[in-house]
Nucleic acid binder design. Sequence first.
RNA 1: GGGGCUGUAGCUCAGCUGGUUAGAGUGCCGGUCUGUCACACCGGAGGUCGCGGGUUCGAGCCCCGUCAGCCCCGCCA
Length: 590
Amino acid sequence: MTRTSLRTHRCGQLRREHAGERVRLGGWVHRSRDLGGIVFIDLRDRDGIVQVCVGPAWAPAELLAQAHALKSESVVTIEGEVVARPPQGRNAELATGDVEVHATALQVVGPAETPAIQVARAKGEELAAEELRLKYRHLDLRRPELQANLILRHRLLQRARRALSELDFLELETPILTKPTPEGARDYLVPSRVHPGEFYALPQSPQIYKQLLMVSGFDRYFQIARCFRDEDLRYDRQPEFSQIDIEGSFVTQEDVIGFVEAVLVALWDEAGHKIDRRFARLTWREAMERYGTDKPDLRYDLPIADWTSQVQPLAVPFFQSATNGSRVRGIAVRGGGTLSRKDVDQLAETAKTHGAPGLAWVKRQGEQLSGSVGKHFTAEALGKIGVGDGDAALMTVGPDRVTSPALDKVRQEVIRRLAPQPKVAHAFCWVVDFPLFEPDPESGKPVFAHHPFTSPHPADVSKLDSDPFACRALHYDAVYNGNELGSGSIRITDPAIQRKVFAHLGLAPQEIDARFGFLLTALAAGAPPHGGFAVGFDRVAMLLAGAGSLRDVIAFPKTTAARALFEGAPAPARPEDLAALHIKVVPPHE
RNA sequence: GGGGCUGUAGCUCAGCUGGUUAGAGUGCCGGUCUGUCACACCGGAGGUCGCGGGUUCGAGCCCCGUCAGCCCCGCCA
């Protein structure tokens, strides 16, 4: 299978059963050990490393001289015999460690200059700085770890395609040069040469196109879709990324959830994890109440509880602000007695940086109570809130919009510090019944929490104008170990409701027609009920590869400033190119 | 847009309270070596202390600015 005109095997394929065979190999000089009269070369390719040995018993003098002069990372082809190593000479750390190749010919087909960063690393040796790894990406990608990540990524892609094809989904492609979208993320714009002053946008997602495909009757669509968003980046956010984009017709939320579960189970299986198909289910409201976040990590208990009524009689000054709209909420930490004073101070700092007024805490050791509010508590009061011997209570006060995110972060930090045994290794869940609107951070006015094609919950349509914050959306997220894997919704198919939603966004009627006329026309042309989902594929690959950032599962990623360090993008355009595009650059001013 | 951390030899790092000639490991170059697998041993070269300005008798170290990378907040329908 891997045989070519220039080689018979990959280096990493050779095993005991190949002993006695004459082989030709091609690979990179990972490392070499020159003992004078005999030279050992670790030859590497994508399958692994094999030891090539150049010794006087089988290699002529000029071959030894050649081996002596080899530079690391050069590409060589060799010819020789696979030989079983003597028992004491085996290397248990190499998959090929039972054999070595006695080379009788060697050719440097791709000489390498001394590499800027090392590919072969000794145990415990640090990686080069990420800046250099990105600059010399062709070298960094030679590292077995990154090769393994990208190979896994390939397998996951193939598996997703197979799983969806088996569910009768069609892989259909949609344009990369599209139309700017209002709201949402900033678009990447592409100027039109033939239409001066006009621009395409790169898609933030193929959302509208996949809906049009449903209107056209394709019934089940998927695509491994490249998406582009011009926003600030994080370790898990790249400006261009891939989604497993899915849409189906004549479906309810339950159908879509079924499709996505099938895909996720297949992907985890591909990575060697057998997971249970019945994912937990919780409403957005439950998630916020118990975990303070819409992407809870259900590997651990440690729920957030409302202790307002239990704590009120204790007259704790810190909780005095627990009045209208505010609640005292906290976490009973089993075994929290082992948290040091420093731990607790840092947890309080975490709470503060996420908006809470601070963190009140009590530790219980037998009848002994300690902590910032320890003197106000009794063992009995602690018992009521589930804090036993050796436990601790961490709590804060305020409106939910303050306490939820703060306690979410505190909970995560407690988990990190105490490192409790997880209940399960893979905790999937569905978060459903998201609100349709969320308050605008500045004005407090209701703004759409999702994209404007998300259908309101049928039971809540009557409250659209009277009580918008009580309206639920037919929107659902898939969550895994505290990570959002993706989200989806049932779409609006009634053009009148769709128009109303656009109007809610503040779009004037003529603007609606200019921007979304094609969608509204399509919805009025006979639209089946439809809905779908998008899985953040890069993030899935990162989690399954155990990688620390998206950059380690993308061959050519951007930096957090959206630069490509290897080829140097973006870069100034030539004046004649700008002229052809009818563009004039105005330098930024202070 | 805001905050934090980092930037010293090709690479990874040390460099004390501001004080003589800026060090180590590794890589690289040369040499010895026939069973190594992070080979070993001997010798050598290698520095715009990110960049610019300032304070000081004197700055790798202090101050201001700036660039780059990473992390966080905002942002990401």
